[in-house]
Protein backbone atom coordinates (compact mmCIF):
# COMPACT_ATOMS: atom_id res chain seq x y z
CA UNK A 1 0.00 0.00 0.00
CA UNK A 2 1.18 3.46 -0.83
CA UNK A 3 1.30 5.20 2.53
CA UNK A 4 2.31 8.55 1.15
CA UNK A 5 -0.60 8.65 -1.26
CA UNK A 6 -2.83 7.63 1.59
CA UNK A 7 -1.52 10.46 3.74
CA UNK A 8 -1.93 12.93 0.95
CA UNK A 9 -5.51 11.88 0.35
CA UNK A 10 -6.12 12.16 4.05
CA UNK A 11 -5.04 15.80 3.95
CA UNK A 12 -7.15 16.45 0.88
CA UNK A 13 -10.09 14.73 2.54
CA UNK A 14 -9.83 16.65 5.77
CA UNK A 15 -9.49 19.96 3.96
CA UNK A 16 -12.49 19.36 1.72
CA UNK A 17 -14.37 18.13 4.78
CA UNK A 18 -13.56 21.38 6.55
CA UNK A 19 -14.86 23.38 3.62
CA UNK A 20 -18.10 21.43 3.57
CA UNK A 21 -18.30 21.94 7.30
CA UNK A 22 -18.17 25.72 6.89
CA UNK A 23 -21.07 25.63 4.46
CA UNK A 24 -23.04 23.12 6.49
CA UNK A 25 -22.43 24.93 9.77
CA UNK A 26 -24.12 27.97 8.26
CA UNK A 27 -27.17 25.91 7.33
CA UNK A 28 -27.20 24.27 10.73
CA UNK A 29 -27.04 27.61 12.52
CA UNK A 30 -29.92 29.01 10.50
CA UNK A 31 -32.01 25.87 10.97
CA UNK A 32 -31.53 25.72 14.70
CA UNK A 33 -32.03 29.42 15.21
CA UNK A 34 -34.72 30.26 12.68
CA UNK A 35 -36.22 26.89 11.70
CA UNK A 36 -35.37 27.81 8.15
CA UNK A 37 -33.79 25.33 5.79
CA UNK A 38 -31.69 27.36 3.42
CA UNK A 39 -31.57 25.58 0.08
CA UNK A 40 -29.70 28.49 -1.40
CA UNK A 41 -26.60 27.78 0.69
CA UNK A 42 -24.93 25.99 -2.25
CA UNK A 43 -25.56 29.00 -4.45
CA UNK A 44 -24.19 31.36 -1.80
CA UNK A 45 -21.05 29.25 -1.57
CA UNK A 46 -20.68 29.40 -5.31
CA UNK A 47 -21.21 33.14 -5.22
CA UNK A 48 -18.37 33.34 -2.72
CA UNK A 49 -16.13 31.48 -5.15
CA UNK A 50 -17.03 33.79 -8.03
CA UNK A 51 -16.56 36.96 -6.01
CA UNK A 52 -13.26 35.53 -4.89
CA UNK A 53 -12.33 35.06 -8.54
CA UNK A 54 -13.03 38.68 -9.38
CA UNK A 55 -11.36 40.14 -6.32
CA UNK A 56 -8.34 37.92 -6.74
CA UNK A 57 -7.83 39.27 -10.24
CA UNK A 58 -8.04 42.85 -9.05
CA UNK A 59 -6.56 42.85 -5.58
CA UNK A 60 -5.20 39.41 -4.84
CA UNK A 61 -6.29 36.34 -2.99
CA UNK A 62 -5.79 37.56 0.56
CA UNK A 63 -8.12 40.49 0.03
CA UNK A 64 -10.59 38.10 -1.50
CA UNK A 65 -10.46 35.93 1.58
CA UNK A 66 -11.42 38.97 3.62
CA UNK A 67 -13.89 40.73 1.35
CA UNK A 68 -15.70 38.02 -0.61
CA UNK A 69 -17.45 36.45 2.41
CA UNK A 70 -18.62 39.92 3.43
CA UNK A 71 -20.03 40.55 -0.03
CA UNK A 72 -21.85 37.24 0.16
CA UNK A 73 -23.15 38.14 3.61
CA UNK A 74 -24.52 41.42 2.30
CA UNK A 75 -26.31 39.62 -0.53
CA UNK A 76 -27.61 37.25 2.13
CA UNK A 77 -28.87 40.19 4.13
CA UNK A 78 -30.85 41.41 1.14
CA UNK A 79 -32.23 37.93 0.53
CA UNK A 80 -33.25 37.68 4.15
CA UNK A 81 -35.49 40.71 3.70
CA UNK A 82 -37.45 38.68 1.14
CA UNK A 83 -38.01 35.92 3.65
CA UNK A 84 -39.40 38.06 6.43
CA UNK A 85 -43.05 37.83 5.45
CA UNK A 86 -42.80 34.04 5.55
CA UNK A 87 -41.35 33.34 8.98
CA UNK A 88 -44.64 32.51 10.60
CA UNK A 89 -46.08 30.84 7.53
CA UNK A 90 -46.04 27.31 6.26
CA UNK A 91 -42.54 25.93 6.08
CA UNK A 92 -43.16 24.68 2.55
CA UNK A 93 -43.27 28.26 1.32
CA UNK A 94 -39.95 29.03 2.94
CA UNK A 95 -38.38 26.01 1.28
CA UNK A 96 -39.74 26.93 -2.12
CA UNK A 97 -38.58 30.49 -1.65
CA UNK A 98 -35.00 29.49 -0.88
CA UNK A 99 -35.10 27.07 -3.79
CA UNK A 100 -36.27 29.87 -6.08
CA UNK A 101 -33.49 32.07 -4.77
CA UNK A 102 -31.01 29.31 -5.54
CA UNK A 103 -32.25 29.17 -9.14
CA UNK A 104 -32.12 32.93 -9.56
CA UNK A 105 -28.64 33.09 -8.09
CA UNK A 106 -27.36 30.28 -10.31
CA UNK A 107 -28.58 32.05 -13.43
CA UNK A 108 -27.63 35.45 -12.08
CA UNK A 109 -24.08 34.21 -11.61
CA UNK A 110 -24.14 32.93 -15.17
CA UNK A 111 -25.39 36.30 -16.36
CA UNK A 112 -22.57 38.14 -14.62
CA UNK A 113 -19.64 35.79 -15.03
CA UNK A 114 -20.66 33.78 -18.08
CA UNK A 115 -20.69 30.05 -18.57
CA UNK A 116 -16.98 29.44 -18.90
CA UNK A 117 -15.30 27.59 -16.08
CA UNK A 118 -13.23 29.96 -13.98
CA UNK A 119 -10.10 29.15 -12.07
CA UNK A 120 -8.60 31.08 -9.19
CA UNK A 121 -4.86 31.06 -8.69
CA UNK A 122 -3.78 31.11 -5.12
CA UNK A 123 -0.71 33.16 -4.15
CA UNK A 124 2.49 31.60 -5.33
CA UNK A 125 4.01 30.54 -2.08
CA UNK A 126 0.98 28.53 -0.97
CA UNK A 127 0.25 27.01 -4.32
CA UNK A 128 3.64 25.40 -4.08
CA UNK A 129 4.18 22.10 -2.44
CA UNK A 130 6.19 21.31 0.62
CA UNK A 131 8.03 18.12 0.92
CA UNK A 132 7.52 15.60 3.63
CA UNK A 133 9.12 12.18 3.74
CA UNK A 134 10.61 12.99 0.39
CA UNK A 135 7.29 13.51 -1.38
CA UNK A 136 5.57 16.75 -2.24
CA UNK A 137 2.44 17.80 -0.40
CA UNK A 138 0.19 20.62 -1.58
CA UNK A 139 0.54 23.50 0.85
CA UNK A 140 -2.82 24.98 0.07
CA UNK A 141 -4.76 22.04 1.46
CA UNK A 142 -2.94 22.38 4.73
CA UNK A 143 -3.72 26.08 4.70
CA UNK A 144 -7.42 25.32 4.29
CA UNK A 145 -7.31 23.11 7.33
CA UNK A 146 -5.53 25.79 9.34
CA UNK A 147 -7.93 28.56 8.30
CA UNK A 148 -11.00 26.43 8.90
CA UNK A 149 -9.74 25.37 12.31
CA UNK A 150 -9.00 28.97 13.24
CA UNK A 151 -12.46 29.84 12.10
CA UNK A 152 -14.06 27.03 14.06
CA UNK A 153 -12.26 28.12 17.22
CA UNK A 154 -13.23 31.72 16.53
CA UNK A 155 -16.87 30.74 16.11
CA UNK A 156 -16.75 28.76 19.28
CA UNK A 157 -15.32 31.73 21.15
CA UNK A 158 -17.97 34.04 19.72
CA UNK A 159 -20.66 31.57 20.71
CA UNK A 160 -19.44 30.97 24.22
CA UNK A 161 -17.93 34.26 25.22
CA UNK A 162 -19.74 37.15 23.58
CA UNK A 163 -23.13 38.68 24.13
CA UNK A 164 -24.20 37.98 20.55
CA UNK A 165 -23.24 34.35 21.02
CA UNK A 166 -25.23 34.23 24.21
CA UNK A 167 -28.29 35.62 22.46
CA UNK A 168 -27.80 33.13 19.63
CA UNK A 169 -27.68 30.26 22.08
CA UNK A 170 -30.72 31.59 23.85
CA UNK A 171 -32.72 31.88 20.65
CA UNK A 172 -31.77 28.35 19.68
CA UNK A 173 -32.93 26.88 22.96
CA UNK A 174 -36.02 28.99 23.51
CA UNK A 175 -37.26 31.34 20.84
CA UNK A 176 -40.34 32.58 22.66
CA UNK A 177 -38.31 33.67 25.62
CA UNK A 178 -35.92 35.79 23.57
CA UNK A 179 -38.86 37.51 21.94
CA UNK A 180 -40.29 38.31 25.32
CA UNK A 181 -37.00 39.77 26.54
CA UNK A 182 -37.56 42.69 24.24
CA UNK A 183 -34.77 41.82 21.83
CA UNK A 184 -35.53 42.72 18.25
CA UNK A 185 -35.99 39.26 16.81
CA UNK A 186 -36.15 40.50 13.23
CA UNK A 187 -32.76 42.12 13.51
CA UNK A 188 -31.41 39.05 15.21
CA UNK A 189 -32.67 36.83 12.40
CA UNK A 190 -31.00 39.10 9.88
CA UNK A 191 -27.69 38.85 11.68
CA UNK A 192 -28.04 35.13 12.12
CA UNK A 193 -28.84 34.56 8.47
CA UNK A 194 -25.97 36.78 7.39
CA UNK A 195 -23.56 34.93 9.66
CA UNK A 196 -24.75 31.63 8.22
CA UNK A 197 -24.32 32.89 4.68
CA UNK A 198 -20.99 34.48 5.53
CA UNK A 199 -19.74 31.05 6.48
CA UNK A 200 -20.72 29.69 3.11
CA UNK A 201 -18.99 32.64 1.46
CA UNK A 202 -15.80 31.78 3.31
CA UNK A 203 -16.16 28.18 2.23
CA UNK A 204 -16.61 29.37 -1.34
CA UNK A 205 -13.41 31.39 -1.22
CA UNK A 206 -11.46 28.50 0.21
CA UNK A 207 -12.75 26.07 -2.36
CA UNK A 208 -12.21 28.45 -5.29
CA UNK A 209 -8.54 27.67 -5.95
CA UNK A 210 -9.02 23.91 -5.94
CA UNK A 211 -12.01 23.49 -8.23
CA UNK A 212 -13.03 24.82 -11.59
CA UNK A 213 -15.77 27.28 -10.69
CA UNK A 214 -18.88 26.72 -12.76
CA UNK A 215 -22.39 28.02 -12.30
CA UNK A 216 -23.84 24.52 -12.56
CA UNK A 217 -22.09 23.36 -9.41
CA UNK A 218 -24.45 24.89 -6.88
CA UNK A 219 -26.72 21.86 -6.48
CA UNK A 220 -23.76 19.51 -6.26
CA UNK A 221 -22.37 21.65 -3.46
CA UNK A 222 -25.79 21.77 -1.85
CA UNK A 223 -25.91 17.99 -1.93
CA UNK A 224 -22.61 17.62 -0.10
CA UNK A 225 -23.84 20.10 2.50
CA UNK A 226 -27.12 18.24 2.90
CA UNK A 227 -25.56 14.81 3.29
CA UNK A 228 -23.28 16.16 5.97
CA UNK A 229 -26.20 17.73 7.79
CA UNK A 230 -28.24 14.57 7.69
CA UNK A 231 -25.34 12.42 8.85
CA UNK A 232 -24.31 14.78 11.61
CA UNK A 233 -27.77 15.57 12.87
CA UNK A 234 -29.42 18.70 11.66
CA UNK A 235 -28.97 21.01 14.59
CA UNK A 236 -25.78 19.64 16.07
CA UNK A 237 -22.83 21.78 15.05
CA UNK A 238 -20.34 19.32 16.46
CA UNK A 239 -22.05 16.41 14.70
CA UNK A 240 -21.88 18.33 11.45
CA UNK A 241 -18.15 18.83 11.92
CA UNK A 242 -17.51 15.13 12.49
CA UNK A 243 -19.77 14.16 9.61
CA UNK A 244 -18.04 16.58 7.26
CA UNK A 245 -14.66 15.11 8.16
CA UNK A 246 -15.91 11.56 7.73
CA UNK A 247 -17.49 12.28 4.37
CA UNK A 248 -14.49 14.28 3.19
CA UNK A 249 -12.01 11.57 4.12
CA UNK A 250 -14.22 8.77 2.81
CA UNK A 251 -14.55 10.63 -0.45
CA UNK A 252 -10.84 11.27 -0.80
CA UNK A 253 -9.87 7.71 0.06
CA UNK A 254 -12.69 6.43 -2.13
CA UNK A 255 -11.37 8.34 -5.11
CA UNK A 256 -8.05 6.63 -4.51
CA UNK A 257 -9.26 3.07 -4.10
CA UNK A 258 -12.72 2.95 -5.67
CA UNK A 259 -12.57 5.52 -8.46
CA UNK A 260 -15.66 4.17 -10.19
CA UNK A 261 -17.76 4.30 -7.10
CA UNK A 262 -16.70 7.22 -4.96
CA UNK A 263 -19.28 9.73 -6.18
CA UNK A 264 -21.89 7.60 -4.49
CA UNK A 265 -20.10 7.37 -1.16
CA UNK A 266 -21.72 10.41 0.50
CA UNK A 267 -25.18 9.30 -0.59
CA UNK A 268 -24.54 5.78 0.61
CA UNK A 269 -23.27 7.00 3.96
CA UNK A 270 -26.38 9.11 4.29
CA UNK A 271 -28.68 6.18 3.60
CA UNK A 272 -26.85 3.98 6.10
CA UNK A 273 -27.07 6.65 8.78
CA UNK A 274 -30.77 7.09 8.07
CA UNK A 275 -31.40 3.43 8.58
CA UNK A 276 -29.31 3.10 11.73
CA UNK A 277 -29.53 6.49 13.42
CA UNK A 278 -32.24 8.61 11.77
CA UNK A 279 -31.67 11.48 14.18
CA UNK A 280 -28.09 11.81 13.03
CA UNK A 281 -24.92 9.98 13.94
CA UNK A 282 -23.72 12.34 16.63
CA UNK A 283 -26.95 13.29 18.28
CA UNK A 284 -27.40 11.74 21.66
CA UNK A 285 -30.73 10.02 21.41
CA UNK A 286 -32.96 12.00 23.66
CA UNK A 287 -36.69 12.09 23.15
Amino acid sequence: MDWVALLRQLIVGISSGMITFLGAAGVSLVVSGMSLMNFAQGAFMLLGAYVCYTITRVMGFWWALLIAPLVVAIVGGIVELLMRPLYKKNMLFQLILTMGIAFVMADGIQLIWGTLVKTVTAPVFISRTFSLLGTPFPTYYVLIIVIACLFAIGMWLVFEKTKLGMIFRAIISDREMVGSLGINVNKLYSIMFMVGVWMSGLAGVLIAPIIGISSQKSFGILFSIMTVIVIGGITSMRGVLYAALIVGVANALGSLYLPWFYTLIPGLLMVIVLILRPEGLFVRSED
Binding site: M99, G100, I101, V104, Q110
Partner: peptide, 12 residues
Protein backbone atom coordinates in the same frame (compact mmCIF):
# COMPACT_ATOMS: atom_id res chain seq x y z
CA UNK B 1 -33.66 32.04 -13.31
CA UNK B 2 -37.07 33.05 -14.60
CA UNK B 3 -38.61 30.05 -12.89
CA UNK B 4 -36.81 31.12 -9.74
CA UNK B 5 -38.34 34.58 -10.01
CA UNK B 6 -41.76 33.03 -10.57
CA UNK B 7 -41.26 30.90 -7.48
CA UNK B 8 -40.30 33.87 -5.35
CA UNK B 9 -43.15 36.02 -6.62
CA UNK B 10 -45.72 33.26 -6.23
CA UNK B 11 -44.69 32.38 -2.72
CA UNK B 12 -44.56 35.99 -1.59
Amino acid sequence: GILGVIMIVTVL
